[in-house]
Structure formats: structure tokens, C-alpha cells
């Protein structure tokens, strides 16, 4: 079996062994969404207006929550350092891990956002735009938060430092996605912005794994 298949198979088996890993972020997302009308007002016009932005932010937080420990257990088990002996560049393996993570952990999160949209009375057109932006933007977000996770691997008291360190880098993604949502609400053309968002995501997904692998190598070099 090729290393690529082994990586994916292992990821699937880990999910089967720890299904809670998938559900906790969804749970978190739904909880945050339920807090919005409670904190604001159960006025459906008001909710519809801010709903898509709220869902975006909540999904972003949920994604950060489940990416924060992406490499932690493999690192402390010593499995991560064995990746160096596999016959592939580390950046490639990291990329695979991130793809697997996106497929099995982030995608389910995106797929439940329509429910959240219904709860906040978001209109159908905006809901489609929301799904599209999340779909296109999350690869970049996953890569960046993976970098945060890798950078803080070696530190025992990092807390949510990885998240704090990476959040400022999300600014362009959030702004572009918000632009798409505003245009979708107006009914104007969203395609150019989506293309820009997609380009950012592709570039990030290509380059960030290299930085992640450097960070992992660094942390392996620092542990005994």
C-alpha cells in the first residue's frame, strides 16, 4: 500500500476510534448559533441580516477548536517523528494530513451550517453563497491553523496560543468571504470575489504545508 493510502486509511480508523472528535466542533457550532438570538433578540429580520456573518465566525471558531491539537497526540506518541523516515518529503505528508483533516473534520462542519442558517432565518441565496465561501475558504484556514498547531507543539503551556497566533492571518479570508455574502444579499455577481478567495486558498494550501513541516521538524529536534 502506498504511503498516501496508508495516511488516509489511518485517519479514517482514528475517526472510527474517536468519533467524538468530529461531533464536538459541530456541537460547539450549534451552541454558539443558539446563543446569538438569546444575546440579541428573536427578531428574524435582524437575525437574517447578521446570520451569515455569525455562522461564518462560529464555523471559524469551531474549525480552530478542532485543528488546535492536530499533531499533538502523534507528536507525544513519537509517531510524528517516524514520518521523517517515510520515503516522502515531510511537507507532502503534512499536506496529506491536512487534506485528510479537512475531508473528515472540516467538511462535516460545513455540511451542518445550513441547519444553522435556517435557525437564523438566512435566505436561501445567501445560504448557498455561505456554503460556497466556507467550502472555498476552509482549506486556507485549515492550513493556517495547522501551522499554529505545529508551532506550539513543543510547548507544554501553550493553551490556545496556536489559535491566537494564527487568527490575524485569517483577516483576508474573512473579508473576502464577507464581500461574497454582501454581494449575494444584494443579488450582484459574486464570482470575481469567489475566484479571489479560491486563489488565496490554493496558494495557502500549497505553501503553508512547507512552513508546517519546518515547524514540525523544529519541534522534533527539540524533544527527547
Amino acid at each position: 500500500m502506498s504511503i498516501e493510502k496508508r495516511m488516509l486509511a489511518r485517519e479514517l480508523k482514528l475517526i472510527a476510534a474517536r468519533p467524538g472528535d468530529i461531533f464536538k466542533p459541530m456541537w460547539f457550532l450549534m451552541l454558539v448559533i443558539s446563543m446569538v438570538p438569546l444575546a440579541l433578540a428573536p427578531d428574524s429580520d435582524l437575525l437574517a441580516e447578521i446570520g451569515s456573518a455569525m455562522i461564518w465566525v462560529a464555523t471559524l471558531l469551531a474549525l480552530l477548536l478542532n485543528t488546535e491539537h492536530l499533531f499533538q497526540s502523534d507528536f507525544s506518541d513519537g509517531v510524528l517523528e517516524q514520518w521523517l523516515f517515510l520515503d516522502r518529503p515531510l511537507a507532502w505528508l503534512v499536506g496529506l494530513k491536512l487534506i485528510a483533516h479537512w475531508l473528515f473534520h472540516v467538511l462535516p462542519l460545513i455540511l451542518i451550517t445550513p441547519i444553522a442558517g435556517l435557525m437564523l432565518s438566512v435566505s436561501t441565496e445567501v445560504l448557498f453563497a455561505l456554503l460556497a465561501t466556507l467550502f472555498v475558504a476552509t482549506p486556507a484556514l485549515t492550513c493556517f491553523s495547522g501551522l499554529g498547531a505545529a508551532l506550539t507543539l513543543g510547548s507544554s503551556r501553550s493553551g490556545i496560543l496556536g489559535v491566537l497566533v494564527m487568527m490575524p492571518l485569517f483577516v483576508p479570508v474573512v473579508i473576502l468571504a464577507a464581500g461574497v455574502l454582501i454581494r449575494a444579499t444584494d443579488g450582484s455577481d459574486t464570482l470575481p470575489l469567489m475566484a479571489l478567495l479560491g486563489a488565496f486558498s490554493v496558494v495557502a494550501a500549497t505553501l503553508v504545508p512547507i512552513a508546517v513541516s519546518a515547524a514540525i521538524r523544529l519541534n522534533i529536534g527539540g524533544s527527547n
Partner: peptide, 28 residues
């Protein structure tokens, strides 16, 4: 590095996977 087999202090196995799955991943 592909000619090296390293076994260190750490367990080098994942607790939530079976013995066979662990070895399958590491050795192929």
C-alpha cells in the same frame, strides 16, 4: 533517511489503533 529504522523512548504507536493498523501505517 529511508534506510534508517529508529526506535526511541516514546511509544511510537497510537493508543487508539489496533496493533496491526499501527504497524501497517509505519511499515507498509
Amino acid at each position: 533517511l529511508d534506510q534508517v529504522l529508529y526506535i526511541g523512548h516514546k511509544p511510537q504507536v497510537t493508543r487508539d489503533l489496533t496493533v496491526l493498523d499501527n504497524l501497517k501505517f509505519l511499515t507498509g
